[in-house]
Design a protein around this nucleic acid. Structure first.
Length: 798
RNA sequence: GGGCGAGUAGCUCAAGCGUGGAGAGCGCUUGUCUUACAAACAAGAGGUUGCUGGUUCGAGUCCAGCCUCGCCCA
């Protein structure tokens, strides 16, 4: 064994061994309570980030812990076709060659995407393995593989038959670059600097004008009304009159609607149902026409008349010039507001009225709200339950159709007579007229429509498989908070609707790593950390430890310090094991005969209990920190040092190996490779550590204060050179660990003065009647205890 | 505009219910090749816990207000 632990080689060997020996495999026929984690399938639009590794580390820690505890454990791998994300990523690649997706044609695109899929799908699985993630790789699923496709079709038809899927011509978020509709969740809002123009709309009866404020003057061409708040005294007399829209000189009514914000601009709002979501709602309620002057490509369309073909900016300029020449442009001012952008390609989203497929959410949402309110699904940290509920209780209908070529085709066919046939597989004839001339809907489904089925489609649903019966519902879903609505919510309502049970009981919303500058990590901006930068030099164990240490519930900046700490821990374990093995292997057996031996066994057991509590609460940062201190401070610095003089005794080594075994077991879920490697080197191995039983609670009695007095004496001697009086075991342990070079040479008076100050502090507190009367009794007792200790210390100083 | 979170040592972060002396790792200074580990061990310096008030015997922690940063929703 080399004095320096080198993870390179060791880790790959164990990853291969575990997998070849079938130790990652889940068996529906195996006994035991199940523990199921569905790893969120990464997008095939790229390789893994360090953030994915954090998520995988915490999941694998839970999975390995449960496996050792005897649970029948399934850790499910897969990857996601990631509709628009992949579409946009491929678009970026093609653009470098001067081509676009549409240039390839639908079939050409399919061929192209297959290559992409094989490349990234393979990369993702190998990256999972490099981290030591104990996923059942045989079961890897893809959201567009054959069985999964069938599940998605069943889901669509199910919702259609329930009457919850409908096609409607409504305003949607339209990406003018990708030429597709987006859901509300695929739009991100960013502040933008704009100009707010105040334009006068003359009253048709010549009695004056109404001034409106707009940031999009080009849309004036599609105005169909001016709206004011019904309580607005300034405009009350105008409601019911007509105004003349500038440029197009169309007469439109002044209406009253409560959705108008009186404080914004002049309090009068131009209504453009074709190009604004709020206006669309108001327009529908008032029966207003829906004009469109902007096309799908974002430029002015034929309805814009002489402005057709112009950009919105140029058209807006022309409209304002027109108004200015006629004295209708009151003023222009700078205005900063948030504007929707496509979350994938970052184009400014265009609200357009386009026919799309929708899912009615009301009835699906109700049970999903109840599941969280009744605690059947818990969020960690629990504040995210509120976030989830706020969204779910106000959820709007879900636009599920996308005008791209990558995804599940919408299972709807049309015949020449316009009849609609909805079926899971391609029908032979129109369900209504029997026509065989069927044309399938061109659109594909929102990628999250299929991801929603992940917890059971991966298990074979809609077939009633043994896996589905055994491994649904699962237990823990770990994810970052950005997909609580996109995915977590949708898995919950789809699971409840289709299977009748929530898909998991714990939704763990973990840290979102920031880059060292405190900014969001982004692969496209090159501000991310490549997992290989950590895995190659430090190894998977150190990386896992470091990432778990960063999993605090906050959004910490990525730092190498914690990974370095993990590397030190692996090296420390390695050398502690070397010490014992070099002294001579002997079968592990806990038969402690001294204070320090009982003490370390008790310390390990106490840490086991705390570690279990930490993991149960998904507090990974504290969990790994405990292991670090147990290893460094208790096991190495005190226990091993104190038994060194007796290492030739077989009993001492048997106990030491037994203690090391327990330590390795506690560390295995976090650092699987180095612990398995050491485990293999221990005498009398029969099993792999990965499936070794988790330590049972145990009680080790002993006068543990003997250890404490040795530790106190060590602190004083190391600090000041002063030796305090010790007898018996404490003296022996002190000598073994500290190895004092003399009988004491320090300034005894200075030490006595220091202890005296502590005594006075404690006495002062206990003399405070209010403290003794009001403080918790435990706090007062603790203070008395400290005082007693300091008094004893003073006596020992002689 | 509404909501959530954060601000603690030079850096990255801790500090269950207010538990009574604010800790860890890294970095820095000093010492030490000691039966494994010098990539180690030991000791040390380093803090007005963002600001202002309040509650309390006692506040990093609770309350009110303010400042800065990040995120989500509209």
């Amino acid at each position: 064994m080399d004095p320096l632990y080198k993870p390179q080689g060791v880790e790959a060997r164990w990853q291969q061994t575990w997998e070849e020996e079938g130790l990652y495999e889940a068996d529906p026929d195996a006994p035991g309570e199940t523990f199921v984690v569905m790893h969120p399938p990464p997008n095939i639009s790229g390789s893994l980030t360090i953030g994915h590794c954090l998520q995988l580390s915490l999941e694998d820690t839970l999975v390995r812990w449960h496996r050792m505890r005897g649970f029948n454990t399934l850790f499910q791998p897969g990857y996601d076709h990631a509709g628009i994300s992949t579409w946009a990523a491929i678009g970026r690649t093609l653009a470098q060659e001067g081509r676009s997706q549409r240039d390839l044609g639908r079939e050409g695109f399919d061929t192209y995407v297959q290559e992409w899929l094989e490349r990234y799908g393979g990369t993702i699985m190998s990256q999972f393995r490099l981290l030591g993630a104990s996923l059942d790789y045989r079961r890897a699923r893809f959201t567009m593989d054959e069985g999964y496709y069938r599940a998605v079709m069943r889901w669509f038809v199910h919702l259609y038959e329930r009457g919850w899927i409908y096609r409607a011509n409504r305003i949607v978020n339209w990406c003018p670059r990708d030429l597709t509709a987006l859901s509300d969740l695929e739009v991100e809002h960013e502040d933008a600097d704009d100009t707010l123009s105040y334009v006068r709309y003359p009253l048709s009866d010549g009695s004056g004008h109404v001034t409106i404020a707009t940031v999009r003057p080009a849309t004036i061409l599609a105005d169909v009304a001016v709206a004011v708040h019904p309580d607005d005294q300034r405009y009350r007399r105008l409601v019911g009159k007509e105004v003349v829209v500038p440029f197009v000189e169309r007469r439109v009514p002044v209406i009253a609607d409560e959705r108008v914000e009186m404080e914004f601009g002049t309090g009068a709002l131009k209504i453009t149902p074709g190009h604004d979501p709020t206006d669309f709602e108001i327009g529908r309620d008032h029966g207003l026409p829906e004009l469109a002057v902007i096309g799908a490509d974002g430029v002015m369309n034929d309805a814009a008349g002489e402005l057709a073909g112009l950009s919105q900016q140029e058209a807006g300029r022309r409209v304002l010039d027109w108004a200015s020449e006629r004295g209708l442009l009151e003023k222009r001012e700078h205005y900063r507001h948030s504007v929707g952008h496509c979350v994938r390609c970052h184009s400014r989203v265009e609200p357009l009225i386009v026919p799309q497929w929708w899912v009615a959410m009301k009835e699906l949402a109700a049970p999903a709200v109840a599941a969280v309110k009744e605690g059947r699904v818990r969020f960690t940290p629990d504040r995210f339950a509120r976030v989830y509920l706020d969204w779910m209780e106000n959820v709007r209908d879900w636009c599920i159709s996308r005008q791209i070529w990558w995804g599940h085709r919408i299972p709807v066919w049309y015949c020449p007579d316009g009849h609609v046939t909805v079926a899971e597989t391609e029908p032979q004839a129109c369900a209504e007229c029997g026509s065989s001339e069927l044309r399938q809907d061109e659109d594909v489904l929102d990628t999250w429509f299929s991801s929603a089925l992940y917890p059971f489609a991966t298990l074979g649903w809609p077939d009633q498989t043994p896996e589905l019966a055994r491994f649904y519902p699962g237990n823990v879903l770990a994810t970052a908070r950005d997909i609580i609505f996109l995915w977590v919510a949708r898995m919950i309502f789809s699971g409840l609707e289709l299977i009748g049970a929530e898909p998991f009981h714990d939704a763990v919303i973990h840290s979102y790593l920031q880059n060292p500058e405190g900014k969001r990590m982004s692969r496209t901006l090159g501000t991310g950390i490549d997992p290989e930068e950590a895995l190659e030099p430090y190894g998977a164990d150190a990386t896992r430890y470091g990432l778990l240490k960063m999993t605090t519930g906050q959004d910490p900046r990525f730092s190498w310090g914690t990974i370095e700490e993990g590397r030190k821990l692996a090296n420390k374990l390695w050398n502690a094991s070397r010490l014992l093995l070099l002294a001579g292997g002997v079968e592990p057996d806990a038969r402690p005969s001294s204070i320090e031996e009982r003490w370390i066994l008790a310390r390990i057991d106490a840490t086991r209990a705390q570690f279990e509590a930490d993991l149960a609460a998904f507090d990974f940062a504290h969990a790994v920190q405990r292991l670090y201190h147990l290893t460094f401070d208790d096991f190495c610095d005190w226990y091993l040092e104190s038994i060194k003089p007796r290492l030739e005794e077989e009993d001492v080594r048997a106990t030491a190996f037994a203690a090391l075994e327990r330590l390795l077991k506690l560390l295995h879920p976090v650092m699987p490779h180095v612990t398995e490697e050491i485990w293999t080197n221990l005498p009398a191995r029969e099993t792999r550590l990965i499936v070794a039983p988790w330590p049972e609670p145990e009680t080790w009695e002993g006068e543990l204060e003997t250890m404490e007095s040795a530790q106190t004496a060590a602190r004083i001697y190391r600090r000041s050179g002063v030796r305090i009086k010790l007898t018996g075991d404490s003296a022996r342990i002190f000598e073994a660990v500290v190895r004092p070079g003399d009988d004491g040479h320090g300034d005894v008076e200075a030490e006595r003065a220091r202890v005296q100050k502590e005594i006075e502090r404690a006495e002062r507190m206990l003399a405070n009647e209010k403290f003794v009367a009001n403080a918790a009794p435990e706090a007062v007792d603790a203070e008395r205890e400290k005082l007693a200790q300091y008094l004893a210390e003073r006596d020992a100083l002689g």
